[in-house]
């Protein structure tokens, strides 16, 4: 089942490349030859988006939680002529993989901040990266005092837990109409957890509107 999901993701990603359309903004601007010179174009364009899709744990994390759906809001703004700033807020509810006593699932709110590079070679696809911060808290039964923090699986999640990480993404615009754009986001994230880092892939569709 999981292998099929990954295959679908790859197909979607390839389809995204094939269908990707030119952006309505200045994606064909060449990189500046001298990086000490630049025009201040910050926030000259701003876009907001809604997004929904699925998150897939990778590596040892597949034994911890199941795939799940996510939804979120996004902001994209001009940073340099060939770079956009991106801010993403996403929510997901994860169910543990296998039975975990007294824990039904985990709420996850994720904030992401980074840059999209509109590289001419792969235009109109943009490649982005940045830092993320995930807040989590278990949906559990009973009192948190009943959990043994030293041993019970999921016990630490009965309190607020926050962890940082990094992400890389491909932004694949597929459809553009006036001030609207729809596309596919394929995002790889790594959360800096222990004893192992936690890796996930998310694939989602977004609809974006240009505000100015």
């Amino acid at each position: 089942m999981f292998v099929w999901m990954k295959t679908i993701v790859l197909v979607l990603a390839v389809a995204g490349f094939a269908l990707a359309q030119s952006l309505p903004d200045s994606s064909n601007v060449q990189p500046l030859p001298d990086s000490t010179k630049t025009q201040d174009v910050a926030f000259s364009n701003l876009y907001v988006s809604i997004e929904g899709g699925e998150k897939y744990p990778f590596g040892d994390l597949v034994d911890a939680v199941n795939n799940t759906f996510y939804a979120g809001l996004g902001i994209r703004y001009t940073y340099w002529e060939d770079f956009d700033g991106i801010v993403l807020f996403q929510y997901a509810y994860f169910e543990p993989h296998g039975k975990i006593p007294r824990i039904n699932g985990v709420h996850e709110a994720s904030g992401k901040l980074g840059l999209d590079y509109r590289w001419r070679l792969i235009s109109p696809i943009a490649f982005g990266a940045g830092f993320l911060c995930n807040w989590t808290r278990a949906d559990y039964e009973g009192d948190k005092e009943d959990f043994d923090f030293g041993h019970d699986p999921g016990a630490t999640l009965t309190d607020n837990e926050t962890e940082f990480g990094w992400f890389a993404r491909l932004n694949l615009p597929v459809f553009t109409l006036n001030n609207y754009r729809a596309g596919l986001n394929v995002l790889w994230e790594q959360v800096w957890t222990l004893p192992e880092r936690s890796n996930m892939l998310s694939v989602g569709l977004y609809v974006e509107r240009r505000i100015w």
């Binding site: 939680v65 630490t156 962890e163 192992e196």
Partner: peptide, 9 residues
């Protein structure tokens, strides 16, 4: 850095 988060399970 190094909370358990989902590694807790």
């Amino acid at each position: 850095l190094g909370d358990l988060i989902y590694q807790d399970f």
